[in-house]
Design a binder for these strands. Structure first.
Lengths: 207, 207
DNA sequence: TTCAAAAACGTACCTGGTTTGCTTTATGCT
DNA sequence: AGCATAAAGCAAACCAGGTACGTTTTTGAA
């Protein structure tokens, strides 16, 4: 009865092989110039099997890029405001930068995504899902609060995070070393969250 | 020398016929259940001609839904902050609600869009274009300002407007009369722009 | 060893979208 | 009026992502 057996391991292995082959081909020749047929063939698998693992072509790349903002809010420590929890989480992420994952394949992923409008669109779709979940989490965090307010906050937070990621990706794709990009990211995170917290107004201070 | 002749009129007429037929079919049977072939046939036109007028299927519906935030910022009166110009523009839009366009087809459009994930995605793509242009306009409005700051602001503003529109669409699709939805929209606009202007912080007032 | 479930497969098919090359038709000029 | 031209339309074939379906292989356990 399900001893994490050979079967599961083989499945995982196949899935990883497909994703790796796809990423390599995309990086070599561009996302649009590679067909799923080629990927399937190169991975030694039938097209239908590929689509069994990944529901769409873009999922080959965008899988696992969710930041799960909602979880950060839900799991924040007692007495910590949602926005503060998110700020800390992103500062931590900027400090890690490459959290355990293979660096080269991470960079390849970023290159591929940044150079394909279709994938940028797919990323956006992912973000929209996150936004929805975040709105729910924010509503839970502030019961009795305004519903529209939660939605607006979720939208703005998601937008900020998206922009941060895009700028980060852009720098990486432009060849900036990962470490330096990470340092600058930390700075940018502060700016972004200050903007969220205090708004655009602080042009003229009224202390 | 191009006296707006019969040719142009016929073209415009064909284009409108295609769009109307498409909207009607989508509204009757759902976006995904209608193929472009059917639309072309129903409009008495070849598929290739349809794609000559509308580059993609979703453009049949999403054409002309751009709000052109950038133009509002660029064309704002002297001494008026960008955010203030946008607030006024959206308040005005909420007051008009149905600005001259045929109401029934407007409602059909909203119904169709709100009930199709694919079209919601397409709307999003439109918004992303707007965001980019808005970032540029904001940069122009504040020369010497921080580039990232402009991008973040553009993202947040776009997110707010998107949320407002989604809520508005949702109410319309749920059968709320246009006029009432417009009234509530005006109120929501104020909330959204206050949030943008002053941030999330103002839970406890510090006057 | 045997057997049922799960995984992989091959093939044909659908749909959005593009390409090619040909006909029709409005238009501007003489 | 008549004619050349350029725009618009068309039919049919094609491409790629994705799905449906029925078949074969692999695997875990009896």
């Amino acid at each position: 009865m399900m001893m994490a057996g050979l079967r599961e391991r083989k499945k995982e292995q196949t899935r990883r092989r497909i994703a790796e082959v796809a990423l390599r081909l995309f990086d070599e020749r561009g996302y649009d110039a590679v067909t799923v047929n080629e990927i399937a063939e190169a991975a030694g698998v039938a097209k239908v099997t590929l689509f069994n693992y990944f529901p769409t072509k873009d999922c080959l790349v965008t899988e696992g890029v969710k930041d799960d903002l909602a979880a950060i809010v839900s799991g924040r420590p007692e007495g910590c405001a949602p926005l503060e929890a998110l700020r800390r989480a992103y500062l931590a992420m900027a400090a890690e930068s490459t959290g355990g994952m293979d660096v080269e394949s991470l960079l390849a992923r970023i290159r591929v995504i940044s150079s394909s409008p279709a994938l940028m669109g797919a990323m956006h779709a992912v973000r929209m899902g996150e936004r929805y979940e975040l709105a729910t989490a924010l509503r839970d965090a502030d019961p009795g609060g305004d519903d529209l307010r939660a939605q607006l906050m979720a939208g703005q937070i998601t937008a900020a995070v998206t922009t941060l990621q895009e700028v980060f990706f852009h720098r990486i794709a432009a060849g900036e070393p990962l470490e330096e990009a990470g340092r600058r990211l930390a700075h940018d995170v502060e700016l972004a969250f200050d903007l969220l917290e205090h708004g655009f107004a602080p042009r003229e201070d009224t202390p």
